[in-house]
Every structure is written in C-alpha cells, then in structure tokens.
C-alpha cells in the first residue's frame, strides 16, 4: 500500500487531523510549562484523567461521554494544583505529585470495583489514535481555535509570567489569572491528548517538543513555532510509521519526538564546540 492510498482511509485522515491539532497545542503549552518548571503537570493531570476515565467506565458511558466527563474533573484538579502551590506553599512538583496520586488511587479503586482492567481502559492508558471518531476531531478543532486564541490574546502576559512572576506582577499582570488560564488550557488538552498518546505518555507530547525547541530557538516566538513544528512532524511521521510497520502509534510518535530532541541537542553541542 502506498502512502497516498493510506491517506484515503477515513480513520487515517481523522488520526492525522486530530493528532496534528492536539500535538501542536500540547507543544505550544508545553513551552510555557517546561519553562515554569511545571513539566510534569501534564503527567499529573493525565493520572487524574485515568481516575475520571475509570469513573466513567464504572458507570458505563460512551467513549465520547468519557472524554466530556473527564474535562471538568481534570480542570478542577488543575486548579487544585494551583491552590496547593499558592496556599500550602508547595513546590509545583509536590503539588502535582499529590493530585496525581489521588487520581491514580481513585482510578485503581474504581477499576477494581468494576472487575479489573478492560480493553476500553487500556485504550485510554496507551492511546489509540487510529480510533479517533469524527466527533473527537470536531472537539479537537474547536479546542485548537480556543487555545490558540487564548495564547495569542494573552501571549505577552504568559511570556511575562513565565519569565518572572514578580516582575510580571509589577508590570500589572494579574499573575493568578494567567496561571489559572494556563492550567485550565493544559487540562483541556490533556483530556483530549489521552486518545493520541495515552494517559501514560501524554506529558511527553508536552515536554519533548518543547525541550527540543528550547535547544535551538533564537527567540520566544521561534520556540513556540519550532515546538509546534516538531510536534507536527512527529505525529505525521509517527502515524505513517505505525500504520506501515503495524506498531503502536502513540509510542512511535513519542520515540520520534525523542529522536528530534536528540538531534537538536547534539546539533547544538556541535555548534557550540565547533
């Protein structure tokens, strides 16, 4: 089968479209999160998403309803992480750790109560981008517009807060509001990215393109564009490779992302050391 023939399949088209939109969003938000030392928030929220999925499967609802049901729970958890950081004066990693353990504990408990791990739960844990539905593509497109609009409108405030929170506050930036926007957008994308990379790998979609871009970026906008480019390249080549070689798509996308990081890292070292 040629690549052209492959693209004629509806499920491949949906996978490419939804995967590209989601991966670009993960990468863009990932740049802000990595620089704020909140790289693992994606991982923590994905653990909460696991709890939400387990809950949804426990009450036996449709896959689309699972995604929709997980959104408010993950959003609430992201606000919980923020509050733990602000009120309990915890570092980001500790706050993420608390919320992630809670999510996993609830998930495992509900999975046990519903008779163990099912095929459905596995597809969320490890992702199954080739099973993305038409409705999920529409949700991805809507979220793409929403998140890109939010990042564009708040670009300078996000940059200011990422650079230094105190400096941002003394520039009149409402840092609490900007932090809230960032974690809420992150929780939306985490829920959506479950289907692409799976709960276990979702944070890689945020971290890897971002750290790759940070190796070679020559400005902040360039970093965002490079991260988006890496994400796009990895999703398209990952889906093609996974279909051609009959290997899991989520893991392939992440491995390609890692290779891109390795190239950027080694390329930068080479440039620096002649």
């Amino acid at each position: 089968m040629t690549i052209v023939e492959m693209f004629q399949y509806g499920f491949i088209q949906r996978a490419l479209l939804a995967g590209s939109l989601i991966a670009v969003l993960c990468a863009v938000l990932g740049v802000f999160l990595v620089l704020r030392r909140l790289s693992l928030i994606g991982d923590g929220l994905a653990h909460v998403a696991f709890g939400s999925v387990a809950l949804a499967l426990f009450v036996n609802i449709t896959p689309l309803a699972v995604t929709i049901a997980a959104i408010p729970l993950v959003m609430l958890s992201s606000l919980g992480i923020l509050k733990l950081m602000e009120r309990a004066k915890l570092f980001g990693d500790a706050a993420v750790g608390i919320v992630a353990s809670l999510g996993i504990a609830v998930g495992v408990l509900l999975t046990g109560l519903s008779g163990g791990f099912s095929v459905d739960l596995f597809s969320y844990l490890f992702g199954n981008i080739l099973s993305v539905s038409r409705e999920e593509v529409i949700i991805a497109a809507l979220l793409f517009v929403l998140i890109i609009a939010a990042v564009s409108l708040y670009y300078n405030e996000l940059l200011a807060v990422t650079f230094d929170e105190d400096l941002a506050r003394t520039s009149g930036v409402r840092t609490g509001r900007i932090n809230m926007i960032l974690v809420l957008l992150t929780s939306l994308i985490v829920v959506l990215a479950m289907k692409v990379a799976g709960i276990m790998l979702v944070s890689s979609l945020m971290v890897l393109p971002a750290v790759t871009a940070l190796q070679i970026a020559s400005g902040f906008r360039t970093a965002l564009l490079l991260a988006a480019g890496c994400a796009l390249l990895s999703v398209i080549s990952g889906i093609i490779a996974s279909f051609g070689l009959n290997i899991p798509a989520g893991a392939t996308i992440i491995l390609i992302n890692f290779l891109l990081f390795l190239c950027a890292f080694l390329g930068r070292r080479r440039l620096r050391h002649g």
Binding site: L159, F163, S171, A217, S218
Partner: peptide, 22 residues
Amino acid sequence: AFPATVEEVVRLGLLPHKRFPR
C-alpha cells in the same frame, strides 16, 4: 535556556502601558 531575546525582555517593560490584548 530561556528563549527570550534581550529585545523581547525589554519590550515587556511596556506592558503596564497597554490594555487588553496587551
């Protein structure tokens, strides 16, 4: 590894003079 240029950082000093979207 913070990727902002000197110019990007200096420009942020004008944020207090701007209204939404800043």
